[in-house]
Nucleic acid binder design. Structure first.
Length: 159
DNA sequence: GCCAACGTTGGC
DNA sequence: GCCAACGTTGGC
């Protein structure tokens, strides 16, 4: 079982929104590295939800992968902001879909929410994607990184 | 295939 | 709202 971290803007879709709408399609990702990570997600993997672009950016809660990544329907919808005609071309050509979305099911809030500033201060996380890769919205956590976050949050990070 | 211009993300 | 750190686009 792997651990992942995903970012979401709470004004658009918060942890509470996920709780109300669980399970939810995690759509709208339009970055190739993030897309590759979405493809790697396995059923039962635990996903840390991080609020971004808000007053206190922080890891706030947990979800679990409840359906493997499927073609992101918002990418084939011309009415949608995330529309990408190449998605339609890929599907028509029987190629793997360019953009995908897994389904995530709400788990719980973290016992202690963890502001990004606190995470960035930890030497154990200095080499993590979170610290090293600006703007990446989907990333894996190593076991040791997950263990560090678990201990900071007073949470097992288990489903 | 290089790279300058441009657009976006997201912490601060 | 600023701006650094990116990723993408398109002319050449």
């Amino acid at each position: 079982m792997r651990h992942w971290l995903v970012k979401t803007e709470p004004d658009a879709f918060s942890l509470d929104d996920l709780r109300r709408e669980s399970p939810a399609l995690w759509d709208g990702v339009r970055n190739y590295q993030a897309r590759n990570f979405l493809r790697e997600m396995q059923l039962g993997d635990v996903v840390l939800i991080q609020h971004s672009s808000c007053k206190v950016p922080a890891v706030v809660g947990l979800a679990v992968v409840s359906e493997l990544a499927l073609p992101d329907p918002t990418a084939s919808d011309p009415e949608h902001k995330g529309f990408d005609p190449r998605q339609v071309a890929d599907i028509d050509a029987d190629k793997p879909p360019r953009w995908v979305a897994p389904r995530l099911s709400y788990l719980r809030p973290l016992r202690t929410t963890l502001p990004i500033a606190r995470l960035k201060a930890r030497p154990e996380l200095a080499d993590s994607h979170l610290v090293r890769r600006a703007r990446l919205s989907v990333m894996p956590l190593s076991e040791s990184e997950a263990a560090c976050i678990a201990s900071m949050a007073g949470d097992t990070l288990l489903p």
